[in-house]
């Protein structure tokens, strides 16, 4: 099997992902960590574009940046006592986090690499990957898709129940 040769754009994106990922765990200010996470997730969306998975890239930005990251930023803002600078939530474990994440960043690719050479993409391209994903979701992967929907619905109802209890 031939090894996959990535281009310059890949290396730029990979560098951004690794650096911003490191910043997420090492920065002291939690708000800055959240912003670094947004940069990291956006760069991952860039990788998806590079792999011609445009739908996945848009979904990545829409869900991770547009919903999850905003929720994290929101939580940081709500849990911060803005009146006093002493209670400001600071990242206390940056050294431990740095060591653990460095080990993971080196260890995981190493483990994957010793299992074999990465296969080159077969040259098949899906110009209409939105349609393909839609078809698979409605045929072969119908059950997982519906299970995920039920799980999300349960989480939604759970959130409403919790919010209502607090008010009374």
């Amino acid at each position: 099997m031939e090894a996959y040769e990535p281009g310059i754009v890949f290396w730029i994106l990979a560098a951004v992902i690794l650096l911003s990922g490191m910043l997420v765990v090492t920065l002291r200010n939690i708000f800055h960590c959240a912003l670094a996470l947004i940069l990291c997730l956006s760069a991952v969306a860039g990788l998806y574009v590079l792999l011609e998975a445009e739908f996945l890239a848009a979904a990545q930005v829409l869900i991770y940046v547009g919903a999850v990251a905003i929720l994290i930023v929101f939580t940081v803002m709500l849990t911060t006592d803005l009146g006093s600078s002493k209670k400001f939530p600071l990242n206390q474990n940056s050294t431990v986090a740095f060591v653990v994440c460095t080990l993971l960043a080196i260890g995981v690719p190493y483990l994957i690499n010793i299992t074999g050479v990465w296969p080159k993409p077969k040259g098949e391209s899906f110009p209409d990957n939105v349609g393909a994903i839609g078809k698979y979701l409605m045929t072969d992967f119908m059950l997982p898709f519906e299970v995920v929907s039920v799980v999300l619905l349960a989480a939604l109802i759970g959130a409403i129940v919790l919010a209502r209890k607090e008010r009374s």
């Binding site: 739908f55 848009a58 979904a59 930005v61 829409l62 940046v65 110009p127 939105v130």
Partner: peptide
């Protein structure tokens, strides 16, 4: 080919 979804994504 993701046209309108792309707009929704970048406006976030």
């Amino acid at each position: 080919n993701i046209g309108i979804l792309y707009i929704m994504a970048v406006t976030t």
